[in-house]
Design a protein around this nucleic acid. Structure first.
Length: 281
DNA sequence: ACAAATACCTGTAAGC
DNA sequence: TGCTTACAGGTATTTG
């Protein structure tokens, strides 16, 4: 479900909501959500009564920074079906009942409501990281790199024989691009999804870098992608509108927005992939 | 170095 | 109507 633009949308909303607020309670409900947490009491103790100083993001990982916790951050990864939802209860309005598959709940001092982590497939995770040790395998953040150093992005693309789409999906090379946006990036760059990165011309590699920035930025502006299954919603339960502007992803049979030829679907790297045969070379 | 398969789960849609 | 199957946005690990 959530890729970089969806995680960034939630990050911004979460930062606006909780930065400067003190954690009152942490409920650990689902076992699998906390599968990396050895000391469950210690986890709660580390968080309660701390004030949130920042909510950061690297790739698809959310990182909650807390006053007085040095080098240690709360990691939240939504994986396929995780949602962070703010349930407000202003005044005397009672809280909505918790949805099925609510695995974690956090409350804050002087804030009426609760932050819920809902995750039917239980792939998502919460844990404390020290110096981001568990994130060490990740490549640079895709959006940051596309905006700061396109030459380096192009170098990474050209550094392997791996096909461009699986390359973009490999979080060790570049972090944050998922199945939806990898299709959109390849389309915008005019590159076939199965072209080995090292076979691309320098301009084509730079087009991948450029397209990554454009696609991710545009998706964030539209609040991310909510597909027909409505899996992704933001902190307040709202769907994102970026899906309406997808050129190819999940549009098999529809006309390519550039040349009108029917968009095709295939499988690459075990994932469904969409492309225009005429526009991507 | 790389590709492919598998595993982790639940929910939904399509097919029979 | 019911049952079965395939598939879903992610990632880690194993096998070849």
């Amino acid at each position: 479900m959530p890729e970089l633009p969806e995680v960034e949308t939630v990050r911004r909303e979460l930062a606006d909501l909780i930065v400067g607020h003190q954690i009152s309670t942490v409920e650990m409900i689902g076992a699998r959500t906390f599968r990396r947490v050895d000391d469950r009491d210690g986890f709660v103790r580390a968080l309660v009564s701390r004030t949130v100083s920042a909510v950061n993001r690297h790739g698809k990982y959310l990182l909650v920074e807390l006053d007085g916790l040095v080098r240690t951050e709360l990691v939240i990864h939504l994986r396929m079906s995780g949602q962070l939802l703010w349930a407000a209860s202003p005044g005397d309005v009672p809280l909505e009942p918790r949805p099925l598959h609510t695995h974690a709940v956090m409350t804050f001092a002087a804030m009426a409501g609760e932050l819920r982590f809902v995750d039917p497939r239980t792939f998502g995770e919460w844990y404390l990281t020290v110096e981001r040790a568990e994130l060490g395998h990740l490549g640079p953040d895709a959006l940051h790199l596309a905006e700061s150093d396109q030459a380096e992005f192009a170098r990474i693309v050209g550094s392997t024989r791996t096909a461009v789409k699986p390359l973009l999906l490999d979080q060790r090379r570049v972090a944050g691009v998922g199945n939806i946006y990898a299709d959109e990036i390849c389309f915008l760059a005019g590159v076939r999804i199965d072209r080995p990165g090292s076979s691309l011309s320098k301009p084509a590699r730079l087009r991948i870098a450029q397209a990554t920035g454009e696609v991710l930025r545009a998706a964030i502006e539209r609040g991310g992608t909510t597909l027909s299954d409505a899996q992704y919603v933001d902190l307040y339960g709202n769907a994102g509108a970026a899906g309406n502007s997808h050129a190819v992803h999940a549009r098999a049979g529809e006309p390519c927005p550039r040349c009108s030829r029917a968009v095709e679907r295939t499988v690459i790297g075990g994932r469904s992939a969409y492309f225009c045969r005429r526009c991507q070379k």
